[in-house]
Design a protein around this nucleic acid. Structure first.
Length: 597
RNA sequence: GCGCCCGUAGCUCAGUUGGAUAGAGCAGCGGACUUCUAAUCCGCAGGCCGCAGGUUCGAAUCCUGCCGGGCGCGCCA
């Protein structure tokens, strides 16, 4: 928010010699709370220290200055808050007067713009995407677009987990029970087909473990993991993994085929959500990376060899304990790979910073990774960020694949699409729109994304399907609906004489002021979302802006008959700003808008 | 046992670089569609902000302790 009178106040203070530091009055200015009189409020408690004065004296000083300012219509001091009302002219000029200036408030200073690599999604190629992945993807994409919006150069990347025991499990089940099925022969989407065999594997394995425990009662207390290599299935899986690493042609061929199916399936889901990456890495290409870095670090003394031959780092000084980075047989562990891929990404893109969108169960892992990068002395090691998001639970608790309570991504999208379609049809009567399917898709998809984004990323959230199907309340539909409502008014303006000039002094209704002030706050909200790696504030903001508009809509006619031409023209200008902000905000959340709903 | 996260209205969640009388949606109750789209709006009701101390002009927010919940603490990924 840039208000002339506030700038002048800051300049006035900065001209006084006694101030301890540059006073940015801007940071202490906010929109006045609803129950107080005024447009803006200045918190003088905060300003007291830099001005080397006491809050009340600052408030008095500020009130006097603002009271004499041409832009200010009224001033009131409450405690050490200075609440002031702007003239119509100044208020609308400084908030929404110039559309581009309003939107540019979201840009950060050139000097602060960076090249940021954002890694998200990172799926396993053994089963289809579920609700948890959707939170990841929605957050990742929103973060990418929000970061771009404020001016960063952003590179979205994916790291596909396409090798390992879990991949071999679905491959083995396919080998045993697949009977040559393909996505084409069954009509089943590739990732789902492979996922079905992963489930099949789990069922077979469970049976085998049960049989084993039956035969040998002293194994009763053992876990499935512990018994893995005692089962035929487990042994076969282990062998397949070994064959894969030895590049056995048959195993590799099957792996290629099945991974291809899964990746085709993922692509469809990604396309539908609007997920794109500048670069996709495959773990099968990168999993051997990192060992040379460890060797070098060993020479530098960052790591040390234990008596048993394993290579380790001691991070206990950083409360992260000790961590093995190479096994005693010299092979890599998970963290080794991640060190290697991090280096690879840095080499490929030379970013200033990197972000990982990964669940909060890996907080420790990333703390260790970042600490190691720091120890190794990488110049980019100060700007690494793990966006650790919380789990998505269902009303009855956690999603559990073995209990079949996993919410499938594709299925959820289909359901939301159908529900949105039904909601549209219910409203339009016989007048079915040509773009019905498109509308249903935009509304359904937006609802899912918005629901996942409006909660703070760290929050372990509950996803209630019952609430999701209602396009009411604090939802994406409200925001999209508001956008469409404004579009409707704009269409109506075609029938009217709109030649009158915009005159802000005609906008005297309190709800018009609220709207303009809300628009002025947009830039701050966007910048905060980017800085905090948190889109939820933007969601909340858009809902509030939409509500402010709908409240205005009830009280202030725009294109209705009887509205004077100049007022009509000025109000149109105002609501166009609101629409632009909503559209821009939703776009940063990777959500589309509709001209009609 | 150690580490991290969380505890706010019946439910789901905002609000936490300390600021004014703690907010929204859902659910409940009552209103508003011959008038720019009622996916909306207006109103009512609903709170020892887990508990107890502390820091200060001021604490949901910061500190300490406790209680309750979640997640981590592999030569798995």
């Amino acid at each position: 928010m840039k208000f002339q009178c506030v700038n002048d106040l800051a300049a006035y203070w900065n001209a006084i010699a006694e101030v301890s530091a540059e006073v940015s009055a801007e940071v202490s200015v906010g929109i006045c709370p609803e129950n107080m009189t005024g447009d803006l409020t200045l918190n003088c408690f905060r300003l007291a220290k830099p001005l080397k004065s006491n809050p009340m004296a600052v408030a008095k000083d500020a009130a006097e200055f603002l009271g004499n300012h041409a832009d200010v219509a009224a001033v009131e001091i409450v405690k050490a808050f200075v609440n002031f009302t702007l003239t119509e002219e100044a208020l609308f000029r400084d908030t929404i007067g110039v559309q581009q200036a309003m939107l540019d408030q979201a840009l950060i200073a050139e000097a602060d713009r960076k090249r940021i690599l954002i890694e998200f999604s990172a799926p396993n190629t053994n089963k289809p995407l579920h609700l948890g992945h959707l939170r990841n993807n929605s957050l990742g994409m929103a973060l990418v677009d929000i970061s771009k919006r404020v001016g960063h150069d952003v590179i979205p990347i994916n790291l596909v987990n396409d090798r390992g025991v879990h991949i071999c499990k679905s491959m083995l089940a396919y080998q045993l029970f697949g009977e040559g099925q393909t996505p084409e022969s069954t009509g089943i989407k590739g990732d789902h087909l492979v996922g079905d065999f992963y489930i099949k594997y789990a069922q077979e394995f469970k049976q085998e473990v049960a049989a084993l425990k039956e035969a040998e009662p002293d194994l009763a207390d053992k876990t499935e993991d512990e018994l893995f290599l005692q089962t035929d299935l487990g042994k076969a899986t282990q062998k397949m993994l070994q064959d894969w690493e030895d590049k056995d042609p048959d195993v590799r061929a099957l792996w290629q085929t099945m991974n291809g199916w899964v990746l085709d399936g993922f692509k469809q889901t990604y396309d539908r959500m609007g997920v794109t990456f500048d670069k996709t890495y495959f773990e099968s290409d990168t999993y051997t990376l990192g060992k040379d870095i460890i060797e070098k670090g060993l020479a530098k003394g960052v790591f040390y060899k234990r008596e048993d031959g394993a290579t380790e780092i001691d991070l206990s000084a950083k409360k992260l304990d000790k961590k093995v980075v190479l096994r005693s047989d010299g092979t890599s562990v998970y963290i080794t790979q991640d060190i290697g891929t991090t280096q690879l990404k840095a080499d490929d893109f030379s970013p200033d910073g990197m972000v990982w969108v990964v669940g909060n169960e890996q907080i420790y892992h990333f703390n260790v990774l970042f600490a190691i990068c720091r120890e190794l002395g990488y110049e980019w090691s100060d700007d690494l960020f793990h966006l650790a998001y919380g789990m998505v639970n269902l009303p009855h608790g956690r999603m559990k694949s073995r209990e079949g309570t996993v919410v499938d991504a594709d299925q959820l999208f289909d359901e939301m699409h159908e529900l949105a379609k039904a909601a549209i049809l219910e409203r339009v009567g016989d007048d079915v729109p040509d773009d019905l399917e498109h509308r249903a898709e935009v509304i359904g998809l937006g609802a899912v994304k918005f629901m996942l984004l409006k909660v703070g990323p760290k929050t372990t959230m509950k996803f209630d399907p019952e609430a999701a199907i209602k396009f009411e309340g604090d939802t994406c539909a409200l925001v999209q609906y508001t956008y469409a409502r404004i579009a409707s008014i704009k269409r109506k303006s075609a029938e009217k004489d709109m030649t009158a000039a915009v005159d802000w002094t005609l906008l005297t209704h309190p709800k018009e002021r609220v709207l303009a002030l809300a628009c002025a706050d947009y830039g701050n909200v966007m910048k905060k979302a980017a800085a905090d790696h948190d889109p939820s504030g933007l969601c909340t903001y858009l809902v509030e802006l939409a509500k402010a508009f709908n409240s205005f809509y009830r009280d202030c006619p725009v294109m209705k008959d009887g509205v004077p031409p100049a007022l009509r023209r000025s109000r149109l200008e105002l609501i166009e700003r609101v629409q632009v902000v909503i559209g821009d905000g939703l776009k940063a959340l990777t959500i589309e808008t509709l001209e009609s709903m």
